[in-house]
């Protein structure tokens, strides 16, 4: 096996190493699963890391209630097939309990509200490590994130006081009440994830592929008109287009792109040629230049 010659293989080896460190260093780890391609990739890596044993930690989905239906169906099938344990916590419950308030207006989204539900769930299960699929190439603030990123009791990220990470050594020592966010695919780019999905023949939800959808245009972006949670003004005209999604976050803040890519190899080809970055299709980052950093300081993933 000459695993160190290929670029994807070296990223895979690194990610498996990180996931194993989590299982070895923490009492109660959890893998945060969104149903998106990055977390599906993480699940594959976790399965590989512990074969032939089972993945020694559960998955947890913070459900905004605004997920694409395909994502939820896919999630349930995946955990069933792999025999994984799944925990679901709902943003709707946090709203009903009065812990958070639903946003209103044109750009209303539940993306920010997830943070409260997530922090509550971490406390409920006493999770000490949360594995997530964030990548450093996604956004400028993420580029400074560590692989093991310590969060205080309030889930906050102190970007000026991060632990240095040298060589392969990951320091997972924490105090009671703290937890660590772990990012095994930190060094992967969007194209790397797609190439890996292609190479490994990993199944992903259908909305990642080109399909006909009723949409409307706003701010130069394409929004789904098929789902009620996406706010639409009456004058915003509904048209049908061949589109796919590059991310599958909260429907209300995830825009589609025009695409004819109906297979994984065509998607990879399209990403290779693409000149719009992935987060360009996430409206919540565009709210302000420092949007992501602010959300991270508050405990967002």
């Amino acid at each position: 096996m000459n695993k160190d010659t290929s670029h994807i293989n070296s990223l895979e080896n690194e990610a498996i190493y990180i996931i194993r460190e989590v299982a070895a260093q923490f009492e109660r780890p959890v893998l945060l699963f969104s149903g998106g391609k990055d977390s599906i990739t993480l699940v594959r890596l976790a399965v590989k890391a512990f074969y032939p044993a089972k993945v020694p930690f559960p998955l947890m989905h913070i459900d905004t209630g605004h997920n694409f239906p395909e994502t939820i169906e896919f999630r349930d099938r995946l955990v069933e097939e792999l025999g994984l344990e799944l925990i679901v916590r709902n943003v709707q419950d946090s709203i009903d309990e009065g812990k958070v308030k639903e946003e209103t207006g044109r750009y209303a989204s539940r993306n920010q509200l997830q943070t409260t539900t997530l922090l509550d769930a971490i406390e409920e299960f006493k999770f000490d490590a949360c594995i997530g699929g964030a990548r450093r190439d996604e956004e400028k603030a993420r580029a400074k994130e560590r692989i093991f990123s310590v969060r205080d009791d309030f889930g906050q990220w102190d970007e000026k006081n991060q632990r240095p990470e040298l060589f392969d050594m990951l320091n997972g020592q924490i105090d009671l009440g703290q937890n660590v966010r772990v990012f095994p695919i930190s060094n992967w780019t969007e194209l790397d994830v797609w190439s890996y999905i292609e190479e490994e023949d990993i199944e992903i939800p259908s909305i990642y592929f080109a399909h006909k959808r009723k949409v409307f245009l706003r701010d130069g972006m394409i929004w789904s008109a098929e789902d009620e949670v996406v706010y639409r003004d009456d004058h915003e005209e509904v048209i049908e287009e061949l589109v796919r999604f590059r991310t599958v976050g909260d429907m209300s803040c995830t825009a589609a792109v025009l695409s004819e890519a109906t297979t994984i190899s065509k998607v990879v080809e399209e990403i290779r040629e693409s000149t719009i970055s992935e987060r360009g299709a996430r409206i919540d980052d565009k709210r302000s230049e420092a949007a992501m950093e602010k959300r991270k300081q508050q405990g967002y993933f």
């Binding site: 096996m1 498996i16 194993r20 074969y51």
Partner: peptide, 12 residues
């Protein structure tokens, strides 16, 4: 789930 004859440096 695959067996290999050799594990090269930096492989997990």
């Amino acid at each position: 789930n695959e067996k290999y004859e050799t594990a090269s440096r930096r492989s997990s």
